[in-house]
Structure formats: structure tokens, C-alpha cells
Simulated assay, not measured.
Amino acid sequence: MTDRWRQILSRYGQNVTLHRQDGEEGTVCRAFLQPVLEKGTDFFQRQPTPLGLVRQDRWICLGGPEIALDELGDGYIAWGDLTFTVRSAQPVYLGEKLVYWWGLLAVRD
């Protein structure tokens, strides 16, 4: 299963760079990134705050077992000209084997 997942990521995934909080050089890996599409009429991409508008859009990240989204700490994920903070991350197992990571990301300003 993990071999097929790696094949799918290599063919259809995007190159993302993981930057850990310790400031090391980023690690490039493959993942799927997709915006969370809200159907409600009360969803806005930007919310007003006393200091100005803040982005509120969220993205889903699916990545291989090597990306360990829970180990980024205060680090971030970079993709193109966007950077993301990990809001929530869950490892997904098949039996005892870690197959992929699921993460909910927020765009950093």
C-alpha cells in the first residue's frame, strides 16, 4: 500500500518544502495540497481584526510517512509563493504501518 501511495504522490503530488522550527534548511517532499471549499454563505477568506484583514482560508495536506507533520513545531510548509502553518495533523495507519499524514493547514500572512 505504501508503495502505491508513493507512486501516486510522485505522479500527481506537488513539491512542498518543510521548514522545521529549528531553522534548518527546508526538506523538499511530495504532498497533495487542496483548499477546503466551504459551502456556507458565512465563510469568508479574510476576517477583519483590529489590526487589519487576516486570511482565514484552510487547506488539506496529504503527504507520505516521511513528512511527519506533527514534528514541525513552529515551522511551516512552503508551496509556491504560499506558506502554511499546520493547525491539525493525524497519522493514518494501515494495520501497524504508517501510510500517510493528513493535515489541516492555514495560510500564513
Rank of each mutant, 00 (worst) to 15 (best):
residue 14 Q to G: 02
residue 12 Y to C: 07
residue 60 I to H: 08
residue 106 A to C: 11
residue 39 K to Q: 13
residue 40 G to Q: 04
residue 5 W to Y: 15
residue 13 G to I: 04
residue 6 R to Y: 03
residue 105 L to G: 03
residue 44 F to D: 05
residue 74 D to A: 15
residue 66 E to F: 02
residue 80 G to S: 07
residue 95 G to W: 15
residue 21 Q to L: 06
residue 72 L to F: 04
residue 16 V to C: 02
residue 50 P to Q: 06
residue 88 S to D: 15
residue 9 L to K: 01
residue 86 V to G: 06
residue 63 G to A: 04
residue 29 C to G: 03
residue 92 V to L: 11
residue 109 D to V: 05
residue 95 G to I: 15
residue 20 R to I: 03
residue 77 I to W: 11
residue 19 H to P: 03
residue 64 G to R: 00
residue 69 L to M: 11
residue 86 V to Y: 10
residue 45 Q to E: 10
residue 36 V to Q: 08
residue 25 E to N: 09
residue 75 G to S: 13
residue 104 L to A: 14
residue 93 Y to T: 13
residue 93 Y to A: 09
residue 102 W to C: 12
residue 64 G to E: 00
residue 47 Q to P: 02
residue 81 D to Q: 15
residue 43 F to K: 05
residue 20 R to G: 09
residue 41 T to R: 12
residue 48 P to C: 03
residue 37 L to K: 09
residue 75 G to T: 07
residue 89 A to F: 11
residue 33 L to A: 02
residue 82 L to G: 03
residue 13 G to C: 07
residue 82 L to N: 10
residue 44 F to H: 11
residue 28 V to K: 05
residue 107 V to M: 03
residue 26 G to M: 02
residue 64 G to M: 00
residue 59 W to V: 02
residue 9 L to M: 08
residue 83 T to P: 06
residue 54 V to P: 02
residue 5 W to N: 14
residue 6 R to W: 01
residue 31 A to W: 00
residue 71 E to G: 08
residue 47 Q to L: 12
residue 77 I to V: 15
residue 47 Q to C: 12
residue 89 A to H: 09
residue 50 P to A: 06
residue 1 M to C: 15
residue 35 P to H: 00
residue 4 R to S: 07
residue 80 G to Y: 08
residue 104 L to Y: 09
residue 23 G to M: 08
residue 99 V to T: 14
residue 25 E to T: 09
residue 37 L to Y: 07
residue 13 G to L: 08
residue 48 P to R: 06
residue 79 W to A: 13
